[in-house]
């Protein structure tokens, strides 16, 4: 038996411990907000937090998270009546199209803001590199992250670089 805590609730699981966490969440715990996209940690749709760190649940065996605290998209909001600031920003910026990748995008972005409250464009590029959006909503995701973080939409460093390039 493996014991994990998911969104604050302890779960005792009789599952083959080599099973990736993704399928345990989706099939045993019916937490279907975490998505399957590739099965090889290439697309980020399955991203959850393990002790606050963004992890790809499709390649994380259950045995590797035994005794750990897991947060999924269902547990991202601080309460049933509120949204996480990123979820709010996602609606304000009208980020999702098909929406399938967005649980993973939000979980990755939330882990970023938790450790880096005012990320630069370069920080965002690095943190979000593992999350694919086939609807291509990257500009909106970037805007929403900055809006939730309360940082300037235009990164001064990038603006300066752009000026340099334009001026040769």
């Amino acid at each position: 038996m493996t014991v994990i805590t998911v969104n604050g609730t302890e779960q005792k699981l009789q599952v083959d411990p080599s099973t990736p966490l993704l399928w345990v969440l989706r099939e045993q715990l019916a937490l279907t907000g975490t998505k399957f996209g590739c099965g090889m940690a290439e697309c980020g749709a399955c991203t959850v937090h393990v002790n606050g760190t963004a992890m790809r649940s499709c390649v994380t065996p259950l045995s590797a998270v035994s005794g750990q605290k897991i947060t999924t998209i269902e547990g991202l909001a601080p309460s049933n009546n509120e949204l996480h600031p990123l979820q709010q920003a996602w609606i304000e910026e009208q980020v999702p199209q098909c929406g399938y990748c967005q649980s993973g995008q939000l979980m990755t972005a939330a882990a970023l803001l938790a450790t880096n409250p005012s990320p630069s464009d370069a920080d965002i590029n690095i943190a979000m590199a593992g999350n694919i959006c086939r609807c291509g909503m990257y500009s909106r995701i970037r805007r929403a992250i900055k809006s939730a973080a309360g940082v300037q939409q235009f990164d001064p460093a990038v603006a300066e670089l752009a000026r340099e390039i334009n001026n040769g």
Partner: peptide
């Protein structure tokens, strides 16, 4: 605002 987006940010869609 699109009506389907709230369910697409909290995993309920």
């Amino acid at each position: 605002e699109r009506h389907d987006l709230p369910s697409k940010v909290d995993g309920t869609a």
